Computed example of a mutant assay.
Amino acid sequence: MPTRELTLTRTFDAPQQLVWNAYTVPEQLARWWGPQGLHTPVEKITVDLREGGAFNLTMVDGEGNEYPSEMTIRSLRPIDELVYGWGGQRGLGGGEITVTLSDDGGKTRLVQHFVGEATDEMFPMMEQGTNEQLDKLVALLSS
């Protein structure tokens, strides 16, 4: 499986702490994690916010099919950076995701960088799904 990289950037009209909480508090994650057509029930989220801690989420589709993601927090600098390793899923061989938050004139700039393995077929779907997921986060933080 080829190694790929994907960097996505969003700017939120919200303070950095609020964006950090959206990524690290299960009740917040449940409100936006997953692309269109999938949701992530809070009872299917585990966040142990420390290096080596679990960062596990199971997305569920409308038919009840589950898509688990087992991840491990590799490093974190609250409220600036979260790095987690991802074990992969259905045509995606896993990799590492770095989420960096920075102040942008009272707003928060988020840069999410993925490096890992993905098939030619799955990489465009991963990019689309991640964009949809971040769009859901924009909508949540705008409300």
Rank of each mutant, 00 (worst) to 15 (best):
V99W: 00
P15Y: 06
Y67S: 07
Q112D: 01
E51T: 07
T46W: 00
L140R: 12
G106F: 11
F12G: 06
T108I: 11
L38T: 03
A22L: 04
G105L: 11
R77Q: 09
L29T: 03
T9C: 09
E66V: 10
N65M: 13
R77D: 09
E66P: 03
M125Q: 15
E51K: 04
T24N: 02
S75F: 05
P26S: 08
K107P: 02
L101R: 02
T130P: 06
T119S: 15
M1I: 12
Y67V: 06
K136T: 07
Y67D: 06
F123K: 05
L92V: 13
L29N: 03
T46G: 00
V99K: 00
F55N: 00
D61W: 09
F12I: 11
T24A: 01
F114A: 02
D120Q: 10
L38Y: 10
L18I: 10
L18D: 12
L76G: 02
V115R: 13
T108P: 08
L137D: 09
G105P: 08
M122Y: 13
T24M: 01
G34Q: 03
W20N: 00
V47I: 05
Q133W: 00
T11P: 03
R90Q: 14
R77T: 11
A14D: 08
P78W: 01
E63S: 14
K107V: 04
E127M: 12
R4M: 06
M126D: 08
P15K: 08
G91A: 10
L76A: 04
T98R: 10
W86I: 09
Q36E: 15
G37W: 12
N131D: 15
A22P: 03
S75L: 06
R31H: 10
M125F: 13
Q28D: 11
V83F: 04
E81T: 09
T100K: 07
G37M: 11
E121W: 05
L137C: 12
Q36V: 15
E63A: 14
G129C: 13
W32I: 13
D135P: 08
K136M: 07
N56M: 01
R109G: 03
N131T: 15
N21A: 12
A118R: 02
L29C: 05
V99A: 04
E70I: 09
I45E: 00
T7I: 14
M125H: 13
M125W: 09
T3A: 08
T40L: 04
T108R: 07
A14H: 06
Q36W: 15
R10H: 10
T130M: 14
T46I: 03
L140I: 14
L29I: 14
P124G: 08
E43S: 11
V83A: 02
N65T: 12
F114T: 02
Y67I: 07
G94E: 01
Q28R: 15
P15H: 11
M122S: 14
P35T: 11
L101G: 02
V83D: 02
E43K: 07
A118Q: 05
D13W: 09
V47P: 00
E117T: 08
R10G: 06
G95Y: 07
G116F: 06
L49C: 02
F123V: 07
G94L: 03
N131Y: 10
L101H: 04
M71A: 05
